[in-house]
Write a protein that binds this DNA or RNA. Structure first.
Length: 418
RNA sequence: CGGGCCAUAGUGUAACGGUAGCACGAGACCUUUGGGAGGUUUUAGUUCCAGUUCAAAUCUGGAUGGCCCGACCA
């Protein structure tokens, strides 16, 4: 149980004027994040809880794929990047680089293909060592020319990046599809399933073949895609040509243009990095071959921002239960602390995480306004009005009706979920 | 990186080239308590550097920072 009187953050009455994006306005106003500078945001206690919930959902799905979690370094050895030709600013222009006092340069991680591939040369030599699926949650630094859209396009951000190391094209493709399914599951668990489309996109400068993006429909998105709602398939505007449409067996007449947020992407890397870093294995016949790789990314901040954009109403944020900072927002009025303590005890016994608005100097109206702004799924009010009738009221933030539950036999599970 | 707009207290906003004011917040005391309460009182500010001027928040130049559009986005 977290007492609001003990939270060091506060809600604000007004949104910051220098933020235009809805996600940043609401998250700052409600005290989830703080802007350090353009494109750089601190996660405050409430925001960090959401962040960790998102991280845990992703971790569960990655582990279910059989992937192993590591933590690679932020400081990067230029020598590795020179091998792949990506140290040059002309090739990758958004590097943050620094100098060592003792001489020489270091890179500040913007992605991890090179170091991870190089790392595996120390552990992989036989077909028996493969396949491998390795992921991490790590801060990426990208010197974006223009940060924008609140926490959805920043210069420093936490990313889950997974890399696959396969022996054959078939083995790679099989995992690629499994991972695509895992990604959809992640977005579904976060409540974004119905709005998120696997989207065909152009191969980046990495690749020549296909790549897949996961795009969540939202007017605030940077991307434009064409969706087929029936087939649940989309094509990024970049490659929306008659040829692609035909290739995918789609019909231009049933496709609609939408703005969307790229919440994840997956793409084949082929053998580019394996060859550059010398990551090879011997197959059953003793032939030496390069490892076939794939890369799979999800930006956690962007995902959190997307959820805010998609679900917020004019009163504030509406968190899906799966990632909400707390499950229940308990508001005490009229000095009914004793009855509230009982309710909280019952909630916690049922495994419900509680944010408790115990602030004595705040009016009922302000507490309600804050509860709406913060957006926790369930609001439970303990006040004179209902306690006198041996009841407490429960209301769903997403708009359900107010329900009354008995005070002395309070059972959260008896709620009528809608 | 090209273009546009902008910069006053913790937040949101006023002020003709002439006394920096209001609201919220925060502190103190009192009264309140179901949708951002009231009174008394206290607190805190002109982004920075030059220039013009008797006088600059205000005009000029530069720097820095922020937002937006575009380009970019491994």
């Amino acid at each position: 149980m977290q007492r609001m009187s003990q939270l060091f953050t506060k809600t604000r009455r007004e949104a910051p004027k220098d933020e235009q994006s809805r996600n940043a306005q609401l998250l700052i106003q409600a005290g989830f994040i703080h802007k350090e500078m353009a494109g750089v945001y601190t996660y405050l206690p409430l925001g960090f809880r959401v962040f960790k919930n998102i991280e845990e959902i992703i971790r569960e799905e990655m582990n279910a794929l059989g992937a192993e979690e590591v933590l690679l370094t932020t400081l990067q050895d230029p020598a590795l990047w020179q091998k792949s030709g990506r140290w040059d600013d002309a090739v990758v222009d958004n590097w943050f680089k620094s100098k060592l006092t003792s001489g020489g340069e270091v890179g500040i991680a913007n992605t991890h293909e090179e170091p991870l591939t190089a790392l595996l040369t120390h552990f992989v030599s036989s077909y028996k060592d493969l396949p491998l699926y390795i992921y991490q949650f790590q801060t990426k630094f990208r010197n974006e020319l223009r940060a924008k859209s609140g926490i959805m396009r920043t210069r420093e951000f936490m990313m889950k990046d997974l890399y696959s190391f396969s022996r054959s094209e078939e083995e790679f493709k099989q995992f690629y599809e499994q991972c695509a399914e895992a990604y959809m599951k992640i977005f579904e668990r976060m409540g974004l399933g119905a709005l998120t489309y696997r989207t065909f996109a152009a191969g980046g400068s990495f690749t020549t073949g296909f790549t897949d993006e996961f795009q969540t429909l939202s007017a605030s998105g940077e991307d434009t895609i064409y969706i087929d709602t029936e087939k649940k398939i989309a094509i990024n505007k970049e490659i929306y040509t008659d040829e692609t449409i035909a290739q995918l067996g789609l019909d231009k007449d049933t496709m609609t243009e939408k703005k969307s947020i790229e919440v994840g992407n997956i793409f084949p890397l082929g053998t580019k990095y394996a060859e550059a870093m010398g990551l090879r294995f011997r197959d059953e016949e003793g032939n030496e071959k390069p490892v076939i790789m794939g890369s799979y990314g999800i930006g956690l901040g962007r995902l959190m921002g997307a959820v805010v954009e998609v679900f917020a109403d004019n009163r504030g944020i509406i968190w899906p239960a799966s990632i909400a900072p707390y499950d229940a927002h308990v508001v005490v009025l009229d000095g009914k602390e004793e009855e509230t303590a009982h309710i909280i005890q019952e909630l916690e016994r049922a495994g419900i995480e509680v944010l408790y608005d115990d602030r004595e100097d705040k009016s009922a109206g302000e507490k309600f306004a804050d509860a709406d702004l913060i957006g926790i799924p369930w609001r439970i009010v303990v006040s004179k009005r209902t306690v006198e009738q041996n009841q407490v009221e429960v209301k769903e933030r997403s708009g359900g009706k107010m329900q009354l539950l008995p005070l002395d036999n309070f059972q959260f599970s008896s709620l009528n979920f809608q």
